[in-house]
Design a protein around this nucleic acid. Structure first.
Length: 209
DNA sequence: ACGCAGATCCACT
DNA sequence: GTGGATCTGCGTG
């Protein structure tokens, strides 16, 4: 995905978050290529969104990548983990999409070595997928997916969700109106979605069409 | 210095 | 399946 690609800027951030479901996320890691299908995302809508890092225009060294052009890598840390975001709007419009879970597709063996977990637990959470990928710092901040970065989101290599499900966002501390907005999107039935209950899993097709 | 955050793990119902 | 403990980096005082 290149800088000039209008994909991000042409759509609202919540639309982008939905369209990213089924796209392939890859990372050229030192140990080899790893990657997976994006199955869960969340949209964060900037200065008005009380759950967003840029709420009220907050702008610090660590959330600065959110203000970058569409496709900017935004990695931040919480609870000792690292999470992966994409800036989704034009430069200086601090809206982003959090990638919360992927279905492993490339380099599964590498991911299994990076993480002490197997099965769906390998990548069914935002911190888990980063650990599986072997990313444990913020060095790639400000890079552009697929342009000058080892991280890439393949727009055209896409799986099609049978159905996209929504919910409120996970772990947002703020109790404002925004905490309950349905800005989390996931592939219905995909077992790699965080917190997916066994009885809701579609083990035949993983929720893909 | 201090306190908490866009989470995870594990020991228990 | 779920609640509580614990993980560090960063923002605020």
């Amino acid at each position: 995905m290149s800088t000039s690609d209008p994909f991000y800027a042409s759509a609202s951030t919540d639309q982008v978050a939905q369209e990213m479901l089924g796209m392939l996320l890859t990372y050229q890691s030192p140990k080899g290529l790893v990657g997976g299908w994006i199955v869960e995302t969340e949209a964060y809508l900037g200065q008005l969104d009380s759950a967003a890092h840029a709420f009220k225009g907050r702008r610090t060294a660590s959330n600065e990548p959110l203000y970058g052009p569409p496709g900017t890598v935004y990695i931040y840390s919480i609870h000792g983990r690292y999470l992966l975001d994409v800036a989704a709007q034009a430069k200086d419009v601090p809206q982003g999409v959090l990638i919360r879970a992927v279905e492993p597709f490339i380099g599964k063996e590498i991911m299994l070595k990076n993480r002490a977990k197997t099965g769906f637990d390998l990548t069914n959470g935002p911190g888990k997928l980063m650990e599986a990928f072997g990313i444990s710092d913020k060095k790639m901040n400000f890079e552009i997916f697929g342009d000058n970065s080892k991280l890439d989101i393949h727009k055209h290599r896409k799986k099609i969700p049978q159905m996209i499900e929504t919910s409120n966002r996970i772990g947002v501390s703020n109790q404002g109106d925004w905490a309950g907005k349905p800005l989390r999107y996931f592939v219905k039935g995909n077992p790699f979605v965080s917190g997916m209950k066994k009885r809701d899993m579609d083990l035949d097709h993983f929720g893909w069409r």
